[in-house]
């Protein structure tokens, strides 16, 4: 039983990390251009990538 008291919060923390990661991807606009991102991976020349 004691181990549950440790494992349950731990798994919750992991879940929260995943939620935070999703929140970050959403804020960073990673879902704004799915077609473009899929195509960009094919551009092999680093110069093809946009300057940031």
């Amino acid at each position: 039983m004691n181990i549950v008291m440790f494992l349950a919060p731990f798994s919750l923390a992991l879940g929260l990390v995943a939620l935070a990661a999703f929140w970050w991807t959403l804020r960073a606009g990673q879902y704004d251009d799915p077609a473009g991102d899929a195509a960009r991976i094919l551009a092999d020349d680093p110069a093809d990538r946009p300057k940031t």
Partner: peptide, 25 residues
């Protein structure tokens, strides 16, 4: 993807342009 990288490359080469980003979607 070809159109995209061509457009971004050419537009970025113009003077005064800092960045060009194409949203393909």
């Amino acid at each position: 993807a070809g159109c995209m990288s061509k457009i971004e490359r050419e537009i970025q080469a113009l003077s005064g342009v800092v960045s060009a980003r194409l949203n393909l979607t």
